[in-house]
Design a protein around this nucleic acid. Sequence first.
RNA 1: GGGUCGUUAACUCAGUCGGUAGAGUAUCUGCCUUUUAAGCAGAGAGUCGUUGGUUCGAAUCCAACACGACCCA
Length: 492
Amino acid sequence: MEDSNQIIAQRRQKAGELAKEGITLYANDFKPGHRIIDLLPADDFDHDTPLSAGTMSVAGRIMALRRFGKAAFLHLQDGTGRIQVHVKRDEVGDAAYAIFKKLDIGDIAAFTGPLFRTKTGEVTIQALSLKLLTKSLLPLPEKFHGLTDIETRYRRRYVDLMVNPEVRDTFRKRVEIIRLVRDFLTNRGFLEVETPMMQPIAGGATAKPFKTHHNALGMDLYLRIAPELYLKRLLVGGFERVFEINRNFRNEGLSTRHNPEFTMLEFYQAYATHEDMMELTEEMISWVAMEVCGTMQISYQGREVDLAPPWRRYTMDEALEKVGGLSRELLSDFAALKKLALSKGVELQPQAGIGKVKTELFELLVEERLIDPTFITAYPTEVSPLARRNADNPEITDRFELFVTGREIANAFSELNDPDDQRQRLEKQIAERGADEEVFPELDDDFLRALEYGMPPAAGEGIGIDRLVMLLTDAPSIRDVILFPHLRPEKK
RNA sequence: GGGUCGUUAACUCAGUCGGUAGAGUAUCUGCCUUUUAAGCAGAGAGUCGUUGGUUCGAAUCCAACACGACCCA
């Protein structure tokens, strides 16, 4: 379809003419001597700093072009920035100018020459020579509105990155955030490890897995829904502080907050409790925000969010009471709670207990109203199959979830390390699921065996990296922080 | 899975009551050696998402489908 387009035909024709004249369309024998950012003054409005003397050489993509017959201005963009180049026939010579006339917006080219300031003060390279490095055959989006069509931006992320600087910024920040998290944990003695992405049993969370098959072994495997059970095996093995930043895969619906593959940080610390994890989380996220955003008071989608610790802490009951507006009496009245949940349209399995009902009501009434960071603690044991029971009240666990801007960012708990309790709770969970599940949940016997060897008391936490990046880059959709979000195939 | 909205030139968008398609940018030609959404003059560029239906006639009305966005589960 695109081959028949006039603009593309013209570009191919120009490329053909250049090739016929002996110009290499895809040369790879030029090494730029300078990065564009290093040629520009630190402050755009500083018109007094002397410019570096001598001949500069840069390479990049032509993003804008204004021709005047025997001269032209263009903007060249490399990985560091954008600089104006002035090309004059009298300076580059007739032969080079003839080649230059066949260059287009989108071409990658090299220019060498000294710096000067135009009469409006813009630092500009006066080209003395130029070289085509890569001919571009497809036109770039319009200069003023750019590329805004969301579908095209995701499908052709390379064009999005080329023309939308704020998109480049977001993904640079993403890399920075991950690096900072890694540094933070490494500096506290955590060991970064890699555990299986393909697992014989998809454990460690409640989610539908992707299924795949190993031909040589003749066995089905699942893409992991969580690394949790493997990281805990490492605690058993004696690594007392471990973390992993890697992909999880969940075979469920897509939304502005869900991509089938997403990046998860999980970390585990021996001899720590969920209380320690709360402190660590406050420290880590507020520090990362400070490093990346320069402040702990950030704005997300028009709402002010204060990330400065300490953060609010509510038990689930407190949150239901203070934020959800439920009375204390109601919270201990299972029948009434259940009736309320059903009246709100919550679907409950027959075996759902009070803990499950409270959790459903929490998601419905409280979650989206937690804008500033809030730890919700004392999760019911019923919905926390891997968490340690509270010493004073076995119906709740030593667990918290962290909510910011109405979204779950982290989930952590003191780990259950009693192998018999763990076995019972997993068996119960499996018994309650099952029938309607596409993938029948299985008991991970090896994990339980590991616990029988003895896992040190520990706390662990998972943080959704994509959601953290969304928060710190003010991105409304998870697709804005994943370079190549999942889309259906493009129709021919 | 359900609902709502969208899909028109390479890009960003108009298109009235149903009468065979418009603008800006980009491209091409000419002029133009400090412009920056350069300017002036001219030109070319379209399977109106797809397939059916209604109609003398469909970008426009109807249906199904595809892809996307948002909301809900």
